[in-house]
Nucleic acid binder design. Sequence first.
DNA 1: CTATATAGTTCAAGCTATAAACTAAGTCGC
DNA 2: GCGACTTAGTTTATAGCTTGAACTATATAG
Lengths: 408, 408
Amino acid sequence: MSGTAAAAVSEVGTPGNMGDVRRSNLALVLGKVVQSAAGVHLTRAQIAAGTGLTKASVSSIVLDLLDAGIIREVGLSRQGERGRPGVGLELNPSRGVMGMEINVDYISAGVTRLSGDLVVHEIQERDNRDSSDAAVMSALAELTAGVRGAAAAKDVEVLGGGLAVPGLVEAGSSMVTVAPNLGWVNTKLDVNRLLPGVPLGVSLFNEANAAALAELAHGPQELRDFLFVSGEVGVGGGLVIGSELFTGPEGNAGEVGHIVVDPAGTPCSCGGTGCLETIAGQDAIFAAAGIEAKARSRSESMSDLLAALAAGSPSALLAVQRAGASLGVAVASTSRVVNVRAVVLGGHFAVLDQWLRGPLLESLAKYAPGLLSPEDVSASTVGEAGALLGAAGSVVRALVEAPYRLQA
Amino acid sequence: MSGTAAAAVSEVGTPGNMGDVRRSNLALVLGKVVQSAAGVHLTRAQIAAGTGLTKASVSSIVLDLLDAGIIREVGLSRQGERGRPGVGLELNPSRGVMGMEINVDYISAGVTRLSGDLVVHEIQERDNRDSSDAAVMSALAELTAGVRGAAAAKDVEVLGGGLAVPGLVEAGSSMVTVAPNLGWVNTKLDVNRLLPGVPLGVSLFNEANAAALAELAHGPQELRDFLFVSGEVGVGGGLVIGSELFTGPEGNAGEVGHIVVDPAGTPCSCGGTGCLETIAGQDAIFAAAGIEAKARSRSESMSDLLAALAAGSPSALLAVQRAGASLGVAVASTSRVVNVRAVVLGGHFAVLDQWLRGPLLESLAKYAPGLLSPEDVSASTVGEAGALLGAAGSVVRALVEAPYRLQA
DNA sequence: CTATATAGTTCAAGCTATAAACTAAGTCGC
DNA sequence: GCGACTTAGTTTATAGCTTGAACTATATAG
């Protein structure tokens, strides 16, 4: 978990009162508990020293957090230290959140504890292309009910959930503006139906954004500003700046799939010309490599591509090489515009890392010399469950930043 | 002035206390005073109604602001309204800030009141290319001393200042990382020397960023998210998102001059290839138009270009057309990455607006259809003094968001 | 068993916002 | 010209929160 607890006050533009101070410090203390390394349990005194709050304030705040069931006390084993031993604090392991994902050919659900570790995880193959959104949601509701039961059996109560979908979303209104590969347009999802009765409700996320947040939470500590590039049928992206998802004024920032990488290129499904997606999207790579895109299972086509690459197929190698070079152009421009200096490759870009990497780095050296070095380009560490973990992690993070939502 | 007062609390990660609430509400109240339209003076009661604070709190806060000399009371003339008349409040017109600019062929300084209107303004032609930074700073210090005196004669006391330079800056350490057209590299400026004894000190800004902020403050109200593209010898940019300058993790976001617009293009001074600057920078346009770039005065070359365009010179028209088209590619990609939907053209792009506009819009329609419509592309309204006004405005804005810095 | 050291709690004090009562200063109606 | 009314701003009592100091609790060292 990354959990940078912010001294958040009430909405900008509204008066502040003493309750805001309490809420801010509540988040500050909880943030310390979250930050503590796995297995290390901070005491009230250590939190006081670490935050600058007095012991009195910390005690009072910890009491609130215990009452809310967010944290719990845990005995501490010390050896040979003088003085009264402190009482360790940790996130309540019997509270968790549900991460869910709807993708083109599967739905999945899993429960993580507040600490981020996965307790239950189920994937169900399902062709969602020709289903109505209602049918997909029904299937997912059934899946989550089972997963929720399995978590309960392991003594983990689900407080809320996050759903990731491969499309642009309006988080506030649970609206999927457009999900090309699902065929959804302005589709309003009744997300709360997936987890009836949970105190924190269910939030909606873009898949690439969720995967980026998973990378933030589960990847290396020092990774706080990066561009996550997700290669699927389309090419998505998530921009993390200062450990925060940067969504831009309309919520769709980081959509690198439609950066212009070849002004003289071919038309894109978005109506534009020469977009990255027309060269580095899965369909584009398969087509250029001479591999039949199998509607039934993309993973089959991907296996074919990997086999062709391993066999040294010139067309396959060229296709991937061209994708890598174009990705480099897009990343170079992005790093200029938003001034990030790290890139994480996800989806098929992670799978194809060993072939993509060379051309990508060459391209970066040519178009943005000195900005990104080889060690700034990494492949995603979270893998397939990324979107799910990110969606769940986001919900946890929102709770950590506003723990008072669970009080009373 | 835009002045969106934020409910800002102390640094993230530090404990909040009641003083933070005070500071937050201080900024909230002052923000209301700033927002009020020119000539309209809000009363305490109106501020209470507008912010949600009680009259008692507003009275107490207003007293602090009066004591600090940031605002003052002003008699209100009403006609035929019942009840006790309120006392109007306005920004203290006898307090101001200094905006300063160092550019390639001039230095300038001006003082604005806290309300944003320019009281004194002086430009001094000076070729800074071959001067040491110390010599330039000495010349500027002399200029500011005179301007400060002139402002004092008009009863405006200078509280602080902002200096804009055409290069990348580290605001915190007053360091100019690189200013290619001045020949400066890692140059530390003793900015406080420019305004000895002012309570708020002097801050350093990138020129394009400052111009963008001036556009935010002095341009249309609804302009809150936009890309400002500044055409000078180089091509700079400033990104405003949610009425805030977005600088990215390393402070240099919005540098659209080095977006790749032609992967098969020519080398750029940055070491890259096919950057926007190689096609749309002043030198590139002059060269393509067959106009001699005069070292002594760029404005002369610009006059020649305008004359050539007016005379219908094919090479000049083609040069500008190509610049516009490339600008379109860069803007299209930027709007994808950061999801902004408005562009403001500054510098020579504003001057060449009538010739650039067509190719730019065509290019946008081709590469980012539906994202930006013609009315989303505008030319800068602030003109030459933009950088200076923006630097000054930033200082004012920082004060409005943290007025307690002037207390005691 | 006493001295010491550290953890955590209790309690008075200070600051801030709130709500209600109160004072101030106008207009309206007769 | 005087009282009723209306709105602005101040005063006062109250509650919430952090702070700092005093105090209690619980361990180790000798």
